[in-house]
């Protein structure tokens, strides 16, 4: 590396990190929190005794899983204005990522609920619980333990996917990298630096995920 490159690297690391911490991580956190709510609601709808709810939920999951996230973001940000709905880049990004987490997450939550032994439902019913009480008090707390590791992986994927928000003009870390790179004519250097910061974020998250999994294993029945 030349001195000039080292200087550019040092100058750009701070803005990149800052964009990561101030924009990328919050976007991921907000989308994930909302996405989890959508995921649980969708999973419950798919397991509902009401046919219409099941159909609506399946349709939503089918659409989201069957189309690229990039296309969804473009429809929300560049397409919806033609239907009279103009959203700012942050809101459009949150909507796109929330819908995505909601759809993929609902499959995880649904599988976790279905993995709980039928005897648990029966025990809950036998003490007089309604279906909803059994879900809330007995099934979901156990399903949560099953779902947490794969949901952790979804969150890590989401952190990386937020880079797609650059294409709809949201100033997250990757878009900052694009701008620095264009100004300094150093794409290899700057994009590598951005990649390294994503790697750092994801490594920290993987480490947290490992700790959580060990904790969960300790409490769960063998």
């Amino acid at each position: 590396m030349t001195d000039r490159q080292i200087e550019i690297l040092i100058d750009s690391l701070l803005p990149l990190l800052k964009a990561g911490v101030v924009f990328t991580i919050p976007l991921a956190l907000v989308s994930f929190a909302l996405g989890l709510i959508v995921a649980v609601a969708t999973a419950l709808a798919r397991l509902s005794t009401i046919r219409v709810l099941r159909l609506v939920a399946r349709f939503y999951v089918w659409i989201i899983r069957g189309t690229p996230l990039l296309v969804q973001l473009f429809i929300i940000f560049y397409g919806l204005p033609y239907a009279g709905i103009t959203l700012d880049p942050f809101i459009a990004s949150v909507i796109g990522f929330t819908l995505s987490v909601g759809a993929y997450g609902s499959e995880i939550v649904r599988a976790a609920i279905l993995s709980i032994h039928k005897g648990q439902w029966e025990a809950a019913y036998s003490i007089g619980m309604t279906r909803w009480q059994a879900l809330r008090r007995v099934i979901l707390p156990q399903a949560a333990r099953v779902a947490i590791p794969p949901l952790g992986s979804s969150f890590i994927s989401l952190v990386k996917d937020t880079s797609l928000a650059a294409t709809i003009l949201y100033m997250e870390m990757f878009r900052v990298a694009q701008q620095i790179s264009a100004a300094k004519y150093e794409p290899l250097l700057i994009y590598s630096a951005a990649g390294a910061i994503y790697l750092l974020f994801c490594s920290v998250l993987s480490w947290l995920q490992n700790i959580t999994e060990k904790r969960l294993a300790r409490y769960s029945a063998s």
Partner: peptide, 27 residues
């Protein structure tokens, strides 16, 4: 009615006393 199952079916995420409290609190 109360039922006792062949395979116990206790709630594994609750302690013994919480298992016994559950119906009283929730139901």
């Amino acid at each position: 009615t109360g039922m006792v199952f062949q395979s116990f079916n206790l709630f594994p995420h609750q302690t013994a006393i919480e298992n016994i409290m559950e119906a009283q609190v929730t139901v």
